[in-house]
Amino acid sequence: MHIPDGFLNNNLAGGMLTGSVCMLGYCFGKVLKAIPVSSQILATNCGNTTLKQDSLLLSKNSRQTFLNLAFIGSWIFAFQMFNVPIQSATSAHFIGGVFAAILVGPFFGFIIMSSVLTVQALFFSDGGLLALGANIFNMALVGCFLSYYVYKFIKKFNYVLATFIACLFSVMCASILCLTELSLSNNIIFSQVAKYMLNIHLGVSFLEAIITLVSVKVFNGDINE
């Protein structure tokens, strides 16, 4: 699903990169507000209570939050390495947007997904650097941010159904958007390939839903080893 460099029109790729960076900034702003900060430390030495001026410290709770984010990011990275063979000599992998969104919400999820994608593009040449914006748009914004709201809406009725539909939405919309970007860059004709790609990704989305359900339970510790 990672679009390499050269497939996309430069104008399109540059625009999407700008949009993704703006979105990342917005998410960071939201996250900084959400992180609790311990403002003062009371240090007692020999009965004299002195108020240290070290007000720049995260509370213990938010340190735990960052550790959790690193763990979720590493889980998603590991799962994305695992390519599963599907029909006619092609393979597909887990996206993990819904997994991040269920665990930490859309804003943290967007940051996790985009950081994983950036690491993949920079160090592993999985997805191009100029196409990074398009990849973030497909997998982090649609695959994580928007599908969280789908999940949240259906969660009122049923948790499992919500996960399934959110995964279906994230994978299908990511693939449709990927095809749209490719057809805007005059590589393919959308109507010719849409049926083939959606057919493949229907299976992938069920796989994704099952992995998401299991791995959320394992991450939260509902299943012991």
């Binding site: 990672h2 390519n83 063979p85």
Partner: peptide, 14 residues
């Protein structure tokens, strides 16, 4: 060990 070496969906399309 087990990850498949087949091209992924986008590469296959390409």
């Amino acid at each position: 060990i087990f990850a498949s070496k087949y091209p992924d969906t986008l590469e296959a399309l390409a």
